[in-house]
Nucleic acid binder design. Structure first.
Length: 452
DNA sequence: GTAGCTAAACATT
DNA sequence: AATGTTTAGCTAC
């Protein structure tokens, strides 16, 4: 990246010099308000260090043996069944020397060292670096581990390979704005250690530092959902477009191979099926008619990590062993069913959303009643095992239906109330007629539609 | 049985 | 064409 030591930042830019985006993607001019050149940006702060998820690690022993490099808590499944969120790397340095993001909303997608905000307030610049990964094609001597680390500037031979930081992020849509303090945990120190499955005599509760090799091996074995989670956690706003996710996989995993496209399919599959990943739309600046789709981590996933995608699988029970004569035909047939079902389900979901809207409107009339019970509700909520936006497990939901409530991608205002949730309702009548009932066999239907 | 990967069909953008 | 959704076969544990 060309970060250099020195008390006096030198901000020079030659005319015609190619500008790069910090996440490696070209930007529209309108989006280029924050751009750094690859070579002439000079870090005004000497002896700096970073906090935040860092991807792409030098593998040199000197790097790993450096005391300043923190240990890793390689988040694994936690007691609540989630993959732990491993969003932050900390340093054993004083906070004044650390680079950390203070305000996500302030971070532009790209940066320009000539931005007056930087020149006049240089501390703001590197305070907000969150991600750091190599982009050069030749990675032969650089570990592409997706694990997060902290490049140590003392070893510039390694460090110089980091041609840019990733500030890939776009402003969240209004309705996606995070509540205050939502990302507070992002700056909280998190240790990166091996999961406690080792032979330590504490029963595995203690953790130990991973070696670089272990991290690489571990990362290579990580499931897609976890890797996607990690990718999204590596950017400040926890959002990426699909192509950025692809690129992250190319650079940080062994899955992103060019020889086949199956891994892309798998990524899309995981994005679609895992409730930790939510789809948002962002209007393209300057052209309100165009929108780009971004994938963003759900709030609970930021806090708690991601669950396995298969957990969201429809539990109809794949008939193992029920093979047709032709494997190919079976495959095609299953896909065809999926496609047809997808279409049908899309329709039914759409109808269900309309129903939900109607239900919500009806329930709004209960606002008054809810306010009467607010205090008791609050006390009940306090007894919740999980935070309200944390999706319940199968067990918690106690659904007779095999459908896990994965794609109730509800906006905050339309989330089921804690007071009254559809899961709690076993039947409803309108004008004396049953609107829906929850049959004992679990085949609950909502106005003739399957219950989701 | 669960988790994960993968292929595939189909829909949507 | 790229992206998104869904089903389901298969393997490993």
């Amino acid at each position: 990246m060309g970060f250099q030591y020195g008390e006096n930042p030198v901000m020079s830019r030659q005319s015609g010099q190619q500008m790069i985006s910090l996440d490696g993607y070209s930007r529209d001019q309108s989006d280029q308000h924050f751009v750094a050149t690859n070579s002439d940006f000079q870090l005004p702060t000497p002896n700096y260090s970073l906090t935040g998820p860092i991807t792409g690690l030098p593998q040199s022993p000197s790097f790993w043996s450096n005391q300043a490099v923190t240990s890793f808590n390689y988040g694994d499944q936690t007691s609540n069944g989630y993959y732990a969120s491993s969003s932050t790397v900390t340093r054993n340095t004083s906070s004044s020397n650390c680079l950390h993001r203070n305000h996500v909303s302030d971070i532009p997608r790209t940066w320009d060292p000539y931005d007056p905000r930087i020149i006049n307030n240089s501390s703001m610049v590197m305070d907000q670096v969150d991600s750091f990964y190599p982009t050069e094609e030749d990675h032969s001597d650089v570990s592409m581990s997706p694990a997060m680390s902290t490049p140590e500037l003392g070893d510039r031979s390694d460090h110089q390979r980091y041609s840019h930081t990733s500030l890939s992020q776009s402003p969240k849509m209004e309705e996606e704005s995070l509540p205050a303090g939502e990302l507070d945990g992002f700056n909280q120190p998190t240790q990166f250690c091996l999961p406690g499955k080792d032979d330590s005599d504490d029963g595995g509760t203690m953790s130990r530092e991973m070696t670089a090799v272990e991290i690489d091996e571990h990362a290579a074995d990580e499931p897609y959902a976890k890797l996607i989670h990690r990718a999204l956690m590596s950017v400040p706003n926890h959002s990426m477009i699909l192509q950025e996710i692809y690129q992250w996989f190319r650079e940080n995993t062994t899955k992103g191979t060019p020889d086949n496209k199956g891994w892309m399919n798998s990524i899309r599959h995981n994005l679609s099926m895992n409730a930790a990943f939510r789809k948002t739309e962002r209007k393209i600046f300057g052209d309100e008619t165009k929108k780009s789709t971004e994938w963003v981590l759900a709030d609970f996933a930021v806090r708690d990590g991601v669950q396995s995608t298969t957990r969201y699988r429809k539990g109809t029970g794949a008939k193992k062993g029920a093979r047709s004569n032709s494997h190919i035909r079976s495959r095609q047939d299953s896909g065809r069913r999926g496609g047809l079902s997808a279409s049908k389900n899309k329709f039914t979901r759409q109808r269900f959303r309309e129903q939900r809207t109607d239900t919500r409107r009806a329930l709004q009339s209960y606002d008054f009643l809810q306010s009467q019970y607010q205090s008791s509700a609050t006390s009940n909520m306090g007894a919740r095992h999980n935070s309200p936006s944390t999706p319940p497990s199968h067990e918690q939901m106690g659904l007779a239906s095999p459908y896990f409530n994965t794609h109730m991608k509800l906006e905050p205002y339309e989330r089921p109330m804690d007071l009254i949730s559809l899961e709690d309702v076993q039947g409803a009548y309108l004008n004396g007629e049953p609107v829906f009932t929850d049959q004992q066999d679990g085949s609950g239907y909502f106005d003739g539609l399957p219950r989701y």
